[in-house]
Simulated assay, not measured.
Amino acid sequence: MPAERTLPTTADTEEFGRMLAGELAAGDLVVLDGPLGAGKTALTRGIAAGLGVVGRVSSPTFIIARQHRAGPHDGAVALVHVDAYRLGGGDHLLDDLDALDLDTELEHAVVVVEWGAGVVEHLAERHLLVALRREPESEVRTVTWEWKTS
């Protein structure tokens, strides 16, 4: 049964990401689902902060994937942030995913994939599915999350 929470502001979405990061370790796959403007990148910024990565986190829309190295403090974990929206569909999808080499990245980092539902779950034996929904004409978001086995 998925857990659910209301996130009234973008800051709340980022704080929720920091909280989620406490449950993550290198090798974990996080699949983000939600429409445009639902808060997927804000959530990823929070996860990155919680993991202790170095550098600014922004949407990887046009470059498909961004790698963020772990910070210098103990316990920091690297992050790979992927936007699957622009990956080719159909017969080319598996080739595009293979070119990103995400299964190798999973050994050393937490991999967060925006628009990843139905696309990347096969990369790991289990994944955290996080679904974000935004209330119409509002900043209020609803998030559900649960670990799933592939």
Rank of each mutant, 00 (worst) to 15 (best):
E125S: 15
D103K: 02
D74S: 14
L79Q: 03
G118R: 06
L93D: 05
Q67N: 11
R126E: 12
E114K: 08
D91G: 12
H122E: 14
D101A: 15
H108R: 14
D96W: 08
H92K: 12
L87K: 00
H68L: 11
R133I: 10
T104V: 15
A131F: 11
A84M: 09
L93S: 06
A78Q: 02
G90T: 03
H127A: 08
D98K: 06
V119T: 11
G89C: 13
V120E: 02
D98N: 15
L129E: 12
E114C: 00
E135D: 10
G88W: 03
L129I: 13
L106V: 04
E121L: 15
A109H: 04
A78C: 07
A117I: 09
L132A: 04
R86W: 02
P72A: 08
R69G: 05
P136Q: 12
A109G: 10
R69F: 07
P72Y: 00
V113Q: 01
V111A: 04
A84W: 03
T104M: 13
E137Q: 13
A84S: 03
G118P: 03
G88E: 07
H92A: 14
I64G: 03
Q67Y: 06
V113S: 01
H122W: 04
P136A: 14
V110Q: 10
H92R: 10
V110R: 08
W115A: 01
A131E: 05
E121V: 02
I64V: 09
V112K: 01
H92L: 13
V119F: 03
V120D: 00
A131S: 08
A78H: 03
E121S: 15
H108W: 11
V111G: 00
A76I: 05
L123G: 00
V119A: 08
I64N: 05
H122G: 14
W115D: 09
H73A: 14
L79H: 02
V113N: 02
